[in-house]
């Protein structure tokens, strides 16, 4: 089990960022030397619309403490409507995961544009703080009886 309060525990956060806005926003945070929590690991995808809900479930199954998904602001999608379709999926998924008892902080969605380096940095800090507060993932590793 990954449960328990290991003193050295530091959250492992998987982030999916779309290439055209949010990844560029993360680049800008870097160019601007904005310091943020080192817990995040970014996976670049072409579009937030590429993110299969199964990725998020897979990350949780593998024991990620948090998942962050970010795409272009609605209307800004490089692929015209990718983030609009994604928004519906994400909205339902988030509410569904909350319903089965996964903390809302565990899986978060946001929009970050290519010009929003500061927003990206603040977002990572917020997500990292949230997850530190709620503690490690409680995905049960015990075998089925």
């Amino acid at each position: 089990m990954t449960e328990g309060n290991n003193k050295d525990w530091s959250p492992r956060i998987v982030a999916f960022l779309c290439n055209w806005c949010s990844y560029a926003g993360a680049d800008l945070a870097g160019v601007s030397r904005m310091q943020y929590a080192p817990n995040i690991r970014i996976i670049r995808v072409p579009c937030s619309g590429r993110i299969n809900p199964l990725y998020i479930l897979s990350a949780l199954r593998q024991g990620a403490d948090g998942v962050l998904v970010s795409g272009c602001h609605p209307g800004d999608c490089h692929y015209i409507s990718g983030n609009y379709v994604a928004r519906r999926k994400f909205n339902m998924l988030k509410k569904f995961l909350e319903h089965v008892g996964i903390c809302p902080e565990r899986v978060q969605f946001s929009w970050v544009s290519a010009a929003e380096g500061a927003r990206f940095a603040a977002l990572v800090d917020k997500v990292a703080e949230d997850i530190k507060r709620i503690g490690p993932a409680k995905i049960p590793m015990v075998p089925v009886k």
Partner: peptide, 10 residues
């Protein structure tokens, strides 16, 4: 195809 991946995610 422009490679956005919306199909695959769906």
């Amino acid at each position: 195809c422009k490679g956005c991946g919306a199909c695959s995610a769906t």
